[in-house]
């Protein structure tokens, strides 16, 4: 049991550090994935058909391909893609993409593909009458977006995005296969070194449950905040 403890003898601190890296991976991917998802949602709502098809094709691909495979593609493919992109812009030489960044790239690409559907749905759920009303009282397009659409969009999209967050939190475990020392990999290594794989993998499972439970609480409080002032 002391193997799970903290300090020099135990792996407890290493597991917690792994868990911190897991959260870090998920939070960074959330920020990037949300931004990218917003762009994709706008592309899907665009009047320009090729843009819509592009976004549609992208989501179709990501939704049909295993997350594991997407992460491997991100891991082995990003440098090639970045180098190609740089060449297009007339830049010389490759740019180094560390594996943490590759994992973030893969995870946020997945998040965006699902997130854009949630955002699109929420966008359409804001009644058109409100937008027209905004125009008629002389608000600018930006004001309409910022004052009318965005606050409601947030409220409507929150439950869906919360679910996707939980999915992503669990998907970070795939980074273990890329030798990134997040929670699961630490547990695997600890299990191999100490020859106690069951104990360490169970400990990792328990930590994931804690992370999910905290996320649930946070989501509930966010939703309560976003819904304040709404009639029930």
């Amino acid at each position: 049991m002391e193997l799970l403890g903290f300090g020099a003898e135990g792996w407890g601190d290493d597991l917690l550090r792994g868990a911190a890296l897991t959260v870090q991976l998920a939070v960074v991917s959330l920020a990037i994935g949300l931004t990218f998802g917003m762009v994709l949602a706008l592309a899907k709502l665009s009047r320009f058909a090729p843009l819509r098809w592009l976004a549609q094709g992208y989501t179709l691909f990501i939704r049909g391909v295993p997350e594991f495979l997407i992460l491997l593609l991100a891991f082995f493919g990003t440098e090639k893609a970045v180098a190609a992109g740089a060449a297009l812009l007339g830049l010389e030489g490759g740019i180094e993409v560390p594996k943490f960044a590759a994992a973030v790239g893969g995870l946020s690409a997945i998040f965006a593909a699902y997130g854009c559907e949630v955002i699109r749905g929420a966008w359409l759920a804001v009644p058109n009458g409100q937008i027209e009303a905004g125009h008629s009282v002389g608000l600018s397009r930006w004001q309409i977006f910022y004052r009318i659409r965005l606050p409601q969009l947030w409220r409507i999209a929150l439950p869906g995005l919360g679910n996707l967050w939980l999915v992503m939190l669990k998907d970070t475990s795939l980074a273990a296969v890329l030798a990134i020392d997040e929670l699961l990999r630490v547990a695997k290594v600890a299990g191999e070194v100490t020859r106690q794989p069951l104990m360490f993998l169970l400990a990792a499972g328990a930590l994931y449950l804690v992370l999910t439970a905290i996320s649930d609480k946070l989501r509930a409080s966010f939703e309560a905040r976003a819904n304040r002032g709404m009639a029930r």
Binding site: L198, G205, Y208
Partner: peptide, 23 residues
């Protein structure tokens, strides 16, 4: 539902194959 939805599938696979299997 809570346990199997709250933990990653990969963790579940490894717990059973590498963890329990090591017994």
């Amino acid at each position: 539902s809570y346990i199997f939805r709250g933990t990653p599938l990969l963790v579940q696979l490894w717990i059973v194959y590498y963890g329990l299997g090591s017994l």
